[in-house]
Design a protein around this nucleic acid. Structure first.
Lengths: 201, 201
DNA sequence: CTCATTATGTATCCAGTGGATACATTTGCG
DNA sequence: CGCAAATGTATCCACTGGATACATAATGAG
């Protein structure tokens, strides 16, 4: 049963993974919302009810995608672990601007009541822990102090990002919005110095 | 035609205002989303299609509510205009924690793709202007510097609030979340000192 | 005052959505 | 082999926002 073969068989074989990939692909291509279960199933050549064998309901699918999103964010931050707080925050920014759909699902789904249950804890904790490591300057600050700094920085960046997306904060282009957010983070004094790995925009 | 009289008449008389009030009442009572057009119309004793005489579509209703929300926020800030930046930010916080449903509609509707069009500009600008006045310390800072401070403060507060609502930031109670946000704002140095008009929680 | 015009509601339809139940087909294991 | 569990399908349902056609009430011109 080669899953890559053009399968005409009654059983799909890898429907669950295929569904998650298809959904993530939609988000990666600029989709803000998930497609309907019917459309998603249609793409996979399967009846919409087939998905219910793998996810309890639509929220189940959502939750798995959110978990994957946080894992990816953690991975991205781990890549930049050497660059300290500035690197961590730049990773946040990159993620949010490159995967807006996914980022939105991760962080504004619960408050939008699309998710009844809390977002997946372990993956979120992983992200927070990575951030705390990045912000720890090894000079014996208390865990609480570090945690406060992490949330302040994340809050500032996330808040400005959302204000931009909501239309309250106007910017001529996404890149300029990103620059603005980076600048505010910089003069907040929360990070030693933000690596601006970009040419002039 | 007394609008307060128990109307059995074919014509409602003040349907538009009644619809907006009913929707706002739902939000005030803890509703996160608007009720369906049918439920809303049902409450008003009217067929769901009647609402379409007053709003182009559901988004039309939403947009008017968002506009009202920003007006109310502006009014609340104006009340505290004497207390400077700290007062303005406390007004933000109060509004967000007392009207979570409305606040969410105002600020995370657009990014949730429930609103295709930008949120109403004039009302938003009023809020920004009030905030800028509050942050202006009259020592000749540039408009841009003040604006940056306003957005930093608003971004920080809004971001932490959203992180809390999304479940990333855990707090035992809403009041503790509010305290945490106020504390982060305070040690950001963005406001001179936050009036903590509350007893210990 | 009358009557046509316009504003406002109603009745009924439609497509799309998430979800439920009952049935069909495989797969795989004793 | 043969039967049970896993996986899909067919078909139904309630509900939503929206469209069209028709009914009724308010209003202003003559």
């Amino acid at each position: 049963m080669d899953p890559t073969a053009p399968k005409q068989s009654y059983h799909h074989g890898t429907l669950k993974t295929a569904a998650l990939s298809a959904a993530l692909a939609h988000l990666a291509q600029g989709g803000e919302d998930l497609p309907s279960l019917r459309d998603l199933a249609g793409e996979l050549g399967v009846s919409h009810r087939a998905l219910y064998r793998h996810f309890a309901d639509k929220e189940g699918l959502l939750r798995e995608i959110v978990a994957i999103g946080f894992s990816r964010l953690a991975a991205l931050m781990a890549e930049h672990a050497d660059k300290g707080a500035a690197g961590a925050m730049e990773a946040f920014l990159d993620f949010a601007f490159e995967q807006p759909g996914l980022y939105r699902l991760m962080l504004s789904l619960r408050s939008t009541n699309l998710l009844a249950e809390p977002i997946p804890g372990p993956q979120v904790r992983a992200v927070i822990n990575l951030a705390m490591q990045a912000f720890d300057q090894g000079i014996g600050q208390s865990d609480e102090a570090i945690r406060n700094q992490v949330f302040s920085a994340w809050g500032l960046v996330h808040g400005l990002y959302e204000l931009w997306r909501s239309g309250v904060l106007r910017a001529a282009s996404p890149n300029l919005a990103k620059d603005f957010i980076r600048a505010r983070l910089l003069d907040s004094g929360l990070v030693a110095g933000v690596t601006s790995h970009q040419a002039m925009t």
